[in-house]
Every structure is written in C-alpha cells, then in structure tokens.
Write a protein that binds this DNA or RNA. Structure first.
Lengths: 200, 200
DNA sequence: AAATAATTCGACCAGTAAGTCAATATAGGG
DNA sequence: CCCTATATTGACTTACTGGTCGAATTATTT
C-alpha cells in the first residue's frame, strides 16, 4: 500500500497548504479593512474559528503573514505582466490590457495592494520592495515602448507610471465589493481614463 | 502695565501654540515616513529634543496627534477648494487649478494625506471621514460641472474622482523632496495627465 | 484497539509602548 | 532676590499583543 500512503501523505500536505492559504487570505482581507497593526492575531484566528496558538501551526509569525500577503498580490501581478507578453500591437494597447488586468485583480479577485511595507523588516521588506520595483519597471518599460512607437504621449515616464499606479492603489480604500459599481465596470472606466490621459 | 502683561501672556500663548504645531508637524513627517504605528511617542519627542512626558504637555494623546495631522491637511485642502471659487471659466479649468493646488500641498508644502484613518476611533474617525467626504464632494461637484458645460467627458463621476484622488494619495509613498523631480514639475505633469484623461 | 502522528488549545511569558505623576528646573514679574 | 507660573523630566504603571509550551484532542496507521 505504498501508493496509498503516498496519496494520503500528499493529501495531508495539500490540506495543510490549503489551510495555510486560508489563513493568509483571511488575514489579507482583515489587513485591508482594518490595517495591519489594528488586526490582532486573535482576531485573525477567531475569524477562522481557531485559537491563536493554532495559527502558529501554519505560520511562523505575524510578519510572515504580511509578507505572504504581499507575495500573493505580486505573484498575481507578475502573472498579469507575463500574460500580456506578445499581445497588444502598440505600447498603449499592451498597457491597456495590463492595466485592466491589474484593476480586475484588485476588484474582482479581492486582492489588495498592501501599503504597510514599513511594518516589514530586513529581508522581508527588501524582497517586497524589490518585487514592487520589478512591477513598476515592467510597467515603465511598456510605457516607454509606447512613447517610442508613438502611441503614448512623451512625458516623464516615472511620473506617468506612478500616477497610474496610485489610482490603482487607492482602489483598496474606497472600493466595496457588492456595491453599486461592479469590478468590471471600474476596470473598464480605469482603462479608459488611463488611456485618455496618456495617449498621443 | 496691564497692557504689557496681556502682551506677554499672549506671547506665551502663541509660543505654546507654535510648539504644539511643531509637535504635530514633526509627528506628521514621521508618520508619513514610517507609518503611525511604527512611530513611537519617544521617537517623536526625541526628534524635537524633548522627553516623552513633555509631549503630553502639548497634546492629550497620540491619537490626538494623528487627528490633528489630518485636520492640518484638510484645512489646507479646504482652503484650496475655497481659493478656486469663481476662478476658472469651465469645470475643467477650475479642476486644473484645484488639482495643481492639491499636488503642490503634497509636494512643496510637505503635507501628506495620511491613510491611517482606521487607527482613529469614534468621534475622531467620524470627523476625519466627514471632512474627506466633503473634499471628495467638492471635487465631484466641479467634475460634474465640467460634464455639464462640456469641458469634461461624461463618465461615472465617482470613479473619475477616485481615480484622480488615488493618484494624489500615492504621491506620499514615492515622492521624495529634494529628489530629481521638483514639486512644481510633478504638479504640472499631474495636471496635464489628469486633464488629458478626463477632457472631452 | 493500541500506537503513532497531526492538530488544536488554555494558560502563560515577555516585550513594547502609551500614558501618568510627583518632583524639579527655568523664566519673568514684583 | 524671592515667588509664582510655566515647562520639563525620570521613574513608574498599565494594557495589550505577539509568541511559546506542554497538554489534550483528533485523525491515521498497523
């Protein structure tokens, strides 16, 4: 029954991983609503029907949870960047796809850009900043491509990108799932306003 | 010498008020850099060459400091709103003036939009949210005016406004005074991108 | 059913930071 | 030069919360 055993073990592992993800996701939602420091471990635990001690069976520290929250969103954004490779004939077209994808992540998929980078220390913070930088650089590259092919108006690329990323970030603060505005609606409006703001 | 006494007393009062303001301003800068919860009262005190206990001679609590930080920026924004009354012939023109004014507050004047509203409780939080709502409503009013007079493309006003406010808010995260980009430069670029994004 | 491994918990520990207070230093006014 | 009000402090208290640990409980294997 070696095969069975392996299956079982695999299943257990998967179960563990799933629960760990649940912890991260639940914490992420709480962090987004109340902020990192206003969310205690007991609260995260209780919202999952667990005790605080049980939480530490799945994560090493609160900081690690925050770190994983960041990784989650950056994984998704990296995937979005990758998915527009080759697509879109102009820089602007590519950026439209990517920006819409980002907006969808933040609304439809319930992921949030956490701003609490300062609460992370050492290696954790360095990694998060590195990945954020990578995203910004990817967007900047596309913007510059657009400026090169004439689809995007020439301007300071850094300012342009930060302007656009800021609008996205603010979504966390005001967007409420299930409200009057659907995620798709917002994504569409954002892409339109973004495009109009930067195209030639 | 009653007059003298009154003058002196007034001077003392002014001195007190000035020092109190200094506490708020210094704390605001620290909050913006490190975040509210990562900034201890001792740190605020030491950066002013005081002990923590002395701080409590000027403020009632840390929360009050955060509250006053918010009031400071909202006072400035209210003033900016007031200052564009009557100016600008179209909605777009008025919004350009206001948006540039906001950008200047955040860069040149070193004021920052604090996002830590969740760390405020009860009446404090209610007041801050009320004032933030008032600013958003003022901006929305101008946007709608612009949609009415044909200077601004018709769209969902709420989304439009939040998009623009988000870009402003993100300034706090990435803008560094004394860097390559001057406040004026950024304000100009923001106004241009904002205008292009929403005009007809 | 016994033995073993995976989960979960109550109770506790330790560090941190806000806030208090009695005591002290400083500065003008008489 | 004293006296009063203002300004400042060191030492202390208090409350919270992240994190640990051994025991208990539950699931799994043999």
């Amino acid at each position: 029954m070696a095969k069975q055993n392996i299956d079982r073990a695999f299943n257990r592992e998967a179960q563990y991983a799933a629960k760990r993800r649940a912890v991260i996701r639940s914490a992420a939602a709480a962090f987004r609503r109340r902020g990192y420091h206003n969310t205690s471990m007991v609260l995260i635990a209780k919202s999952l029907g667990l005790s605080k001690a049980a939480l530490y069976y799945y994560v090493k520290s609160k900081e690690e949870i925050l770190y994983e929250c960041h990784m989650m969103i950056y994984d998704a954004m990296d995937a979005a960047v990758k998915s527009v490779r080759g697509k879109g004939d102009t820089g602007l077209g590519k950026l439209q796809l990517l920006y819409g994808g980002f907006a969808n992540l933040l609304t439809r998929d319930g992921l949030g850009l956490l701003a609490d980078v300062d609460s992370l220390k050492g290696e954790f913070q360095a990694t998060v900043l590195k990945r954020r930088g990578a995203i910004e650089r990817a967007v900047t590259r596309i913007v510059k491509q657009g400026m090169g092919d004439g689809s995007i108006r020439k301007a300071d690329a850094k300012v342009t990108v930060f302007f656009l990323m800021g609008a996205l970030n603010w979504l966390n603060v005001w967007y409420e799932p299930g409200g009057r505005l659907s995620g798709e609606h917002i994504a569409e409006a954002f892409v339109e306003q973004m495009s109009a703001g930067i195209k030639t």
